[in-house]
Amino acid sequence: MWTPETYSFKCIIDHQVIFCYFLYLHQIEFGVDVTKKELVLADVIDNDSWRLWPSGDKSQQKDKQTYRDLKEITPEAMQMVKRNFEWVADRVELLLTSVSQGRVVVLMGSISDLVHCEKIKKSCANYGIPCELRVTSAHKGPDETLRIKSEYEGDGIPTVFVAVAGRSNGLGPVLSGNTAYPVINCPPLTADWGAQDIWSSLRMPSGLGCSTVLSPEAAAQFAAQIFGLNNHLIWSKLRSCTLNTWISLKQADVKLRECSM
């Protein structure tokens, strides 16, 4: 089954984020199991199936070729092979972590918006992004809103603010006008005034750069795309989601054609 974890390895190779010293890349072959409707990898990716030449220097190779090239099997030679594979194992661990961390902070104008905000948090979790929920009103307590905002500035952690406020949205513009971090408006829609309330999120004063995304899941995806510029794990999960969407569309197209015949 295709998962973000299996896809992340190829993404890292493609972007040369960590293994930028690969001179030879093992090819990945895959296909679609039409019975189970799954994407299946048809190859093995491990320390035995690649060539590692740090800085492109073949004399520094760390892969199994060092063992193949041994003229004599001695304890010293085996220690060298062991050190090489320990070096490789340390680098492989980097595939599971990211130097660039980030977080999404969702500020809601009222606790009544909690269900809407929980959807954003759940979607952030799918991308591996920590998400915090806070309650504050830019209209009723602007000083407290700016104080909460300041909690997430200055600690070096990249942050995206999501403002959830219906009716007259002052939360997003106030945040955007007082921080250099990205701000996403994600107003909850209501049956009575939803269409009219959206304009308070769309019509921003000059000098403000906050965007507006109506779907809570799409707001989380937008934040993930921002973090994905510098975080290879999030980037990989975004790519796998794109691939899964493409597969779903392809399956729907095939099914429709079969029904039409």
Rank of each mutant, 00 (worst) to 15 (best):
I28W: 11
H232S: 08
A219F: 06
V17K: 07
I12M: 15
Y21W: 13
S123L: 02
S236H: 12
W53D: 05
E72T: 02
R203D: 01
G194K: 05
I13D: 01
A219W: 07
G109S: 03
E144W: 01
N244V: 09
W50G: 06
V81C: 09
T242I: 04
F30N: 06
K64S: 09
V164R: 00
M204C: 15
E132W: 06
S215P: 00
E144C: 04
F9P: 03
Q61I: 00
Q225N: 11
G102V: 03
Y181W: 13
A223K: 10
D143Y: 10
G228Q: 01
T179Q: 11
I28G: 12
G177L: 13
A42C: 15
A42T: 14
Y127V: 06
L249T: 07
H232K: 08
L114P: 00
V105N: 08
L233D: 00
D48P: 04
N231F: 07
G209Y: 11
A223C: 06
D46F: 04
Y24L: 00
S137R: 05
G154A: 05
S110P: 03
A165V: 01
V213G: 02
R91M: 07
Q225F: 13
D253H: 04
S137M: 09
H116K: 01
L249Y: 03
A138E: 09
W199T: 04
G177P: 04
E93V: 00
W193N: 08
D90N: 00
P4D: 13
G228D: 07
A220V: 05
N230H: 15
G209W: 08
E144T: 07
Q101W: 10
S240Y: 15
W53Y: 14
C186L: 09
S260T: 05
S248D: 15
G209E: 09
V164P: 04
I184S: 11
S112E: 06
C124H: 05
P182Y: 11
T136R: 02
L146I: 05
K122H: 12
K82F: 14
E118G: 11
I184M: 08
S112N: 12
L256M: 08
A42N: 15
S236T: 07
T66D: 02
K10S: 14
K237D: 09
K37C: 08
P205D: 12
N47K: 13
H232C: 09
L229Q: 09
H116G: 15
T136N: 02
